[in-house]
């Protein structure tokens, strides 16, 4: 007898475990390269520029509209209980703790992660990775390490930008569209945002950046079978990175809320 569904679940689980193993191994190898590898300033700067600078527009736009919609939706509810002035606090804390990191992470998984997987995957199928090795260059040191550092540097900055732009958008929506009292709005917003929220935000951004870089590079390095394989790796990198990011986000929210409690709980 056959159990198609269970077989399928089984093979997906095996694939996921294999991928997890590959990603873990790549993490270890990259860490090793931090100590034994070569420092290539130009390659690193190029990665930071590509990830950090070129991702600005998408991160700013998504941050702004997330802040705006969150403010509007909160105000629809808060109006009922006449607490409109709390809109800024809700948006700011929500953006710092949850939406800023998650939205930035998802955008980077789509924009940067897929590009990394496609580039490294193409290098793999066109033997450029073999060419690196034939010139005694460690591909992990040359390709993966600068991308990981680039993501670690860029993600927190992009995320903070997205949060700030989101709060500004919320301010505009609240003050101009809903005519909320500006002084109260700003007062509650600054009262409720604590250093804990910012810490949570930045810790999440680091972890998300690391996850995206490692998953994308790992998918890229495992590419096989020409152009079709590159397409597959790119898709895989984006899906894996997004899904794992959301799962890790949940776990981190639970852990970080005990380490860095929300302002009003203190």
């Amino acid at each position: 007898m056959q159990f198609p569904l269970s077989t399928k679940v089984g093979s997906i689980s095996i694939e996921l475990l294999n991928s997890a193993g590959a990603i873990g191994k790549l993490f270890y190898q990259t860490l090793w390269c931090f100590f034994t590898g070569k420092f290539r300033f130009r390659v690193l700067i190029e990665q930071i520029a590509r990830i950090g600078v070129e991702s600005q527009p998408v991160v700013i736009l998504t941050g702004a509209f997330t802040g705006a919609v969150l403010e509007a939706q909160s105000l629809f509810q808060l109006q009922i209980v006449k607490m409109e002035a709390m809109g800024g606090a809700i948006v700011a804390v929500g953006m710092f703790r949850e939406l800023g990191p998650a939205i930035t992470g998802l955008m980077l998984a789509g924009r940067v992660g897929s590009a990394m997987a496609a580039e490294i995957g193409t290098m793999k199928v066109t033997e450029q990775i073999d060419a690196l090795r034939s010139m005694n260059v460690n591909p992990i040191d040359y390709l993966v390490k600068p991308r990981v550092i680039g993501m670690l540097v860029s993600t927190p900055i992009l995320m903070i930008e997205s949060v700030i732009v989101g709060i500004v958008a919320a301010y505009i929506v609240g003050i101009f569209a809903f005519d909320v009292n500006e002084a109260y709005w700003v007062h509650f917003m600054t009262q409720f945002v604590t250093l804990s929220d910012i810490a949570v935000s930045i810790i999440k951004a680091f972890i998300f950046g690391l996850i995206i870089a490692l998953i994308s590079c790992s998918c890229g390095l495992q590419t096989e079978n020409g152009a079709v394989g590159v397409g597959k790796s790119t898709m895989r990198a984006m899906v894996y990175a997004s899904v794992i990011l959301l799962i890790v986000n949940f776990i981190m929210t639970m852990i970080l809320n005990t380490l860095f409690p929300m302002g009003f709980m203190q």
Binding site: T122, M123, T126, E127, Q128, D130, A131, S134
Partner: peptide, 13 residues
């Protein structure tokens, strides 16, 4: 001691 020329060239694009 070895130089390798790959089938498709494998230049860095």
């Amino acid at each position: 001691k070895l130089g390798f020329m790959f089938q498709q060239g494998a230049l860095f694009d």
